[in-house]
Amino acid sequence: MATAPDVTRNPFTQTESPAVGVTIENLSKSFGTFEVLKDISFAVKPGEIFVLMGPSGSGKSVLLKHIVGLEMPTAGKVTVDRRDAAAEETREHVRMALVFQAGALFNSISVYDNLALYPREHRIGNEASIREKVMHALQILSLENAAQKFPSELSGGMKKRVAIARALVMEPQLMLYDEPTSELDPVMGATISEIIATLKDQYHVTTIVVSHDRDLALNIADRVGILMGGRLVFLGPPSELHEPKDPKVADFLHPKIDLQNPRFKQLET
C-alpha cells in the first residue's frame, strides 16, 4: 500500500481536513468479572488502513466501540486526534463514522433519508446541496436506484454499501468498519474490500477495519493487529502474516481441517 498523505480530501467539496490518528494506551475492559480486553496498546497513524483481526469473542468489536466512545474503558485510555475518545466533545471536533456489522440503518426511513439525516441534523447546507451530496455518495457505491427503497427491501451486500454511503456523507476523518465482509458471498466481500481501499486512496481517510477476513487484511491493510483472548498478539505489516511465527496466529490464519482429530473434540477434553 502506498503511504497516504495526512489529509482527508472532502469528497463533496474538494476541501481538505486533516486525517486523524488513534492511540490506545494500556486499555483494559471488563464486563462484570469477565475481562474482555487486557492491557492493549497500539497507535493508528493518520491516513492508514489498520485491520484488526482475531477469533470470535476476542474483543475486536468492543475495542472499536471504545474508539467511537460507545464504551468506557475500565482502565487505560483511548485518544482520537489526541482527544479522549469517551468525551462527547470529541465527536464534535472529529468526524468519526462507524459502519456497523448489521448496517444499523434506520429501518423506518428510506435509504435517501438515512443518508440525508446527518447533514440535515447538523444543518450542513440546504436541501438541494444535501440532495447532491447524498446522490453523489449513492453513485460512488452504485446505489442510485436504491435511494427510495427502505432498508428492509435491500440485500445484505446492499445494506453494507448503504451503511458505507451513509458514513461517507459525514465526510469522516476517521472511518471504522465492523466486520464489513461478514455474511457476504466471496465476490461481494471482495467488492466491499475494494470499496474500503478505494475510499481510503481517494479521500485519505484514516480507516480501522475489524474483520475475520484474511483476504481483506492481506490485500488492503497497511498494518494488521491480531487480538486473541483479549490480548494483542500480533502487530505489523500484512507481509509478515504469510509465515507467522506464533503458532496460534498461524493456526488462526491458516487453519487446517483435521477430520481425524477435530478441534471441537480437543475442546471437550
Binding site: 466512545g69 460507545l70 463514522a97 462507524l98 456497523f100 440503518l105 434506520f106
Partner: peptide, 9 residues
C-alpha cells in the same frame, strides 16, 4: 444499534 448509530453521528 440504530441508537448507537445516532451517537456515532
Amino acid at each position: 444499534q440504530e441508537i448507537d448509530a445516532l451517537v456515532t453521528m
